[in-house]
């Protein structure tokens, strides 16, 4: 029997498993002598459970179908996860807004501390995580007799590949569920562009774009590159783009192969969100902008001339 039994809470929407789950599996696989179970909470989780069962390294998938699990409400999911966690040594969720909302509620019900944003596994009870917006990395250790609840920093782990064949088991979790929290709606900015958190290439704009209209040149470049579009907090606060496009400490932490920062000065909280990008390109009219300190390739000049020119030359 494995010494470490790791339960991963699957994130999913619209019948599709979120790639953050496959990244949690990679993190869990770094724990020695471990056995990985994925839990899927849904109204009917069959399709998501099948996707989770196909992930390499997963031994078992638990499918907990309940009408109350239609939308992921922390207050409803947490008591079910706490009940399910019996017999597991670790309970992991992704460090997305889903996991950040949910996992501390689970930890408190289990009466155990949570480790947020784990970015590296040192051993089954020792991990590394960022603090101060990523300006310091700490090594944290939890006593072996405590269950570990953690959120996994998705930008630090590659998604595990398919090729597994775990068993799927339907499980009935008998706990009282609260009705004090009700889902009303979700308004997603619908877009045909690739998802910001999983895209290979991301083009991002800052306040220098000047308006919602100014972002058009980025959308056009992104289309040519097959890229997702992000934004700095300044551009979101100015109302040029919706909040779900924000990249940074309080927005999305991403790790694309190529990140093109256009008209972004490079505030520390923005840089936190892009540190794991393989290659960073910066285009800015201010040669002194801090973004150039982290950029692999920098180009100084007027973005309204350079971006269309770049798009043209990529033809």
């Amino acid at each position: 029997m494995a010494a470490n039994k790791i339960l991963i809470v699957a994130e999913h929407a619209g019948g599709a498993l979120n790639p953050s789950t496959a990244k949690c599996v990679t993190c869990a696989r770094a724990i020695e002598d471990g056995e990985i179970t994925v839990a899927v909470f849904a109204t009917d989780g069959s399709s998501v459970a099948a996707q989770a069962a196909a992930l390499q390294g997963v031994t078992q998938v638990l499918q907990i179908d309940n009408a109350a699990n239609g939308h992921p409400l922390a207050a409803v999911l947490a008591p079910q996860i706490a009940a399910l966690a019996d017999g597991f040594t670790h309970v992991f969720g992704p460090s997305t807004t889903f996991g950040k909302d949910l996992m501390p509620r689970v930890a408190a019900l289990i009466d155990t501390p949570q480790l947020s944003d784990i970015m590296a596994v040192e051993s089954a009870h020792c991990f590394r995580r960022p603090i101060y917006a990523g300006n310091a990395i700490i090594t944290v250790k939890v006593p072996a007799d405590l269950k570990i609840v953690a959120t996994v920093r998705t930008a630090s782990f590659e998604a595990v590949a398919d090729g597994g064949a775990a068993s799927v088991e339907k499980r009935d979790v008998q706990v009282d569920l609260p009705t004090h929290t009700r889902f009303v709606e979700i308004s997603a900015a619908s877009s045909d562009r690739p998802d910001l958190q999983t895209a290979r290439t991301v083009v991002s704009g800052g306040r220098a774009l000047g308006s919602a209209d100014g972002f058009r040149i980025l959308y056009s470049l992104a289309e040519k590159l097959g890229a997702a579009v992000g934004a700095s907090r300044a551009a979101v606060d100015a109302g040029y783009v919706p909040n779900d496009m924000q990249v940074g400490q309080t927005g999305k932490i991403i790790s694309p192969e190529l990140y093109i920062a256009v008209g972004i000065s490079g505030a520390i909280q923005h840089l936190t969100g892009i540190k794991d990008a393989r290659t960073i390109v910066a285009i800015n009219k201010d040669a002194e902008a801090p973004i150039f300190e982290v950029a692999d390739i920098g180009l100084v000049g007027d973005l309204f001339a350079l971006v269309p020119e770049l798009e043209k030359q990529l033809a």
Binding site: N135, I138, T139
Partner: peptide, 23 residues
């Protein structure tokens, strides 16, 4: 319950290159 054993700076990105134009 959580023991913090070590603080270290994040890995530093290597200084990049500046290019003079789009080409």
């Amino acid at each position: 319950q959580v023991e913090v054993s070590h603080y270290e700076p994040p890995p530093v990105r290597q200084k990049g290159v500046m290019v003079k134009d789009v080409a």
